[in-house]
């Protein structure tokens, strides 16, 4: 099982048109991601890390190339199919949390389930469970503005898990947190990977995070230039 590919990037290009000039963020990136692994994507700023993560997460469509998610090419799907993928298969965790300020903690976690048409009772049950699991069982009715950064990121993680996705994508998840809280968040994400078997991809330039990963993909100028195995695991 561990050698099964869940994501494959094949010659992925992303070219942003900025006024007159074309800016290539990805220039033929290739990468395989295996089911259940913890992959860190690192590289200098502007190397295309976030663009790559967004393409994998169906938030952005590449200009050229293929992205296979569970052997299905999502590179040129219709927007409503992409929305389904974002809702069901992917859980996003962002650097700046991205919670909806007018909704309570519980409602924020319930929101992805609304878009999947899950009944209210089930939503409340699941969201409450998830929030308890991330240690926020006592903050169900707080608004995001009443939470600390670490707490907001926990809510975001609970939200990412609400539809039971196979893949968690995190873009600098600890970038806005102090180092102690950052470690707590990292441990939470690692737990999801190790205990729940979620595939975890983190974009970071924090070495404390990347050295915890199973593998590290190095990006430069929109291409994966190197992939290192951190520990000995059963990968080809």
């Amino acid at each position: 099982m561990i050698n099964e590919k869940i994501i494959e990037l094949k010659e992925v290009w992303k070219i942003y048109k900025m006024d007159e000039v074309d800016f290539p963020a990805l220039q033929g990136a290739n990468l395989d991601v295996y089911k259940g692994e913890f992959l860190a994507i690192v590289g200098p700023s502007g190397s295309g890390k976030s663009t790559m993560l967004n393409s994998v997460g169906a938030l952005d469509v590449p200009s050229k190339g293929e992205i296979l998610l569970d052997n299905k090419n999502i590179a040129h799907m219709h927007e409503s199919d992409l929305a389904q993928i974002r809702g069901k298969k992917i859980g996003f965790v962002f650097q700046s949390f991205h919670l909806i300020p007018s909704l309570s903690t519980l409602e924020n976690v319930m929101l992805p389930m609304i878009f999947q048409g899950i009944s209210r009772e089930e939503r409340i049950k699941k969201a409450t469970e998830l929030l308890k699991a991330v240690g926020l069982g006592d903050k169900l009715n707080n608004l995001p503005s009443q939470l600390s950064g670490g707490q907001m990121q926990r809510v975001a993680i609970a939200r990412a898990l609400s539809n039971d996705p196979e893949v968690i994508l995190a873009d600098e998840p600890t970038g806005n947190l102090d180092s102690k809280t950052g470690i707590e968040i990292l441990n939470l994400l690692k737990n999801l990977n190790k205990k729940n078997g979620k595939t975890l991809i983190i974009v970071t330039h924090d070495e404390k995070i990347s050295r915890e990963a199973d593998r590290i993909a190095y990006l430069e100028d929109g291409k994966v230039v190197n992939v290192k195995k951190k520990k000995l695991i059963f990968l080809p």
Partner: peptide, 16 residues
């Protein structure tokens, strides 16, 4: 706009 982006990132379709 940002909230719309968030909702889309967690699975909201255009129609939603």
């Amino acid at each position: 706009t940002k909230e719309i982006g968030i909702m889309k990132s967690i699975g909201a379709r255009n129609f939603d």
